[in-house]
């Protein structure tokens, strides 16, 4: 029987029959049961190298446990997982992996520079390389001025930033980010987005676990919707957000004739005072609609295509009960 994740992948037309070496992550029927309680039912997933992949699902859907299984922190009860073409948790493969845990905690008696040095040494990095890399990373995450400050004096956002820096120390091929923007202010979130983009350009694969759908929407190439520890669907984000678009027009001089006129491109047309809403099957017809309205004398103040947000799609797929 085909797994949910498998069929969705195939329909998305992205990663069917990828050779194993081209996959950063491949899992088949991964399952985890804690004391009789199923945390992850059956996770089947393929993430090609170089992709920014989002893990979406309600709280308790098994996202973090799935990540931990891929990292070798948690032993699967059943199923298989390969990470960078090696069994998940393989010690040598960890040299190529970066990980930011959900609640990044580390020895708070260390300074941020010491923390990075210690992690670098655990990665087996040379002192010379670390001497170059540490100031570079502290600068990248905006903590250059706090190199000598102890982590116990850090705010939650600062801890998140230093955690991110340690996840990038070894120029990893695969980076796991578990809720990287939690605790960050808007500037911090922007920073995370920029870092993820830079990693994409470097050719790294990023697995992003986030409940902030807008973050995922901006950064990810593909997403997997997870519910009850199972991949309900994996979708290309572009295709997910394409298609039916609702447009809101705010204009003076709108008439019922105009509303009837736009029906040749649009459906669900509704006119109320100075506002016209309509739904088009594709964004390509929008310039024609706009040109038509202007030519008929409408004075347009606002013409806003309302894309179906990931959130709506998320609720549609996962269900408004949040999968509980």
């Amino acid at each position: 029987m085909m797994q949910a994740g498998e069929s969705a992948s195939t329909t998305a037309g992205q990663i069917a029959a990828q050779p194993a070496a081209d996959l950063a992550i491949a899992t088949r029927g991964l399952r985890k049961v804690f004391d009789g309680k199923v945390a992850v039912r059956s996770l089947t997933l393929e993430v090609p190298r170089g992709e920014i992949f989002g893990f979406l699902g309600p709280n308790g859907a098994g996202k973090s446990t799935s990540l931990k299984m891929l990292l070798g922190l948690v032993r699967p009860t059943r199923g298989q997982a390969t990470v960078l073409a090696c069994p998940a948790g393989d010690v040598r493969t960890r040299r190529k992996i970066g990980f930011l845990p959900e609640h990044f905690r580390f020895y708070d008696w260390l300074t941020s520079a010491e923390l990075l040095r210690l992690h670098g040494r655990l990665y087996g990095m040379s002192r010379d390389r670390l001497r170059r890399k540490i100031p570079e990373l502290l600068d990248l995450v905006g903590l250059a001025e706090h190199a000598g400050k102890r982590l116990r004096d850090f705010s939650k956002g600062m801890l998140q930033r230093i955690g991110l820096a340690q996840a990038l120390l070894n120029d990893p091929e695969l980076i796991f980010l578990d809720e990287p923007t939690s605790g960050l202010d808007p500037a911090g979130r922007r920073l995370v987005r920029d870092i993820i983009k830079a990693q994409r350009q470097r050719g790294a694969t990023v697995l992003l676990n986030s409940h902030l759908l807008s973050e995922v929407e901006i950064t990810c190439d593909r997403v997997a919707f997870i519910k009850h520890g199972e991949v309900i669907e994996t979708r290309d984000l572009k295709s997910l957000l394409e298609g039916q678009t609702t447009v809101r027009v705010h204009a003076a001089n709108l008439t019922p004739e105009m509303a009837a006129g736009v029906e040749r491109w649009a459906s669900s047309v509704a006119l109320q005072d100075h506002q016209l809403t309509l739904s088009v099957p594709s964004r390509e017809v929008l310039p024609q609609v706009l040109r038509y309205l202007v030519s008929r004398g409408a004075e347009i103040y606002e013409f806003t295509p309302q894309r179906l947000s990931l959130e709506e799609r998320f609720l549609e797929i996962v269900g408004s009960d949040g999968g509980l």
Binding site: K68, L71, G72, L73, V91, R92, T93, R94, R95, I97, F99, P101, E102, H103, F104, R105, F106, Y107, H119, L122, Y123, G124, G163, Q166
Partner: peptide
């Protein structure tokens, strides 16, 4: 506390 997670995912058995 989860502190061990950042260490246990490094390349050391």
């Amino acid at each position: 506390s989860g502190t061990i997670q950042a260490v246990a995912t490094k390349p050391l058995p």
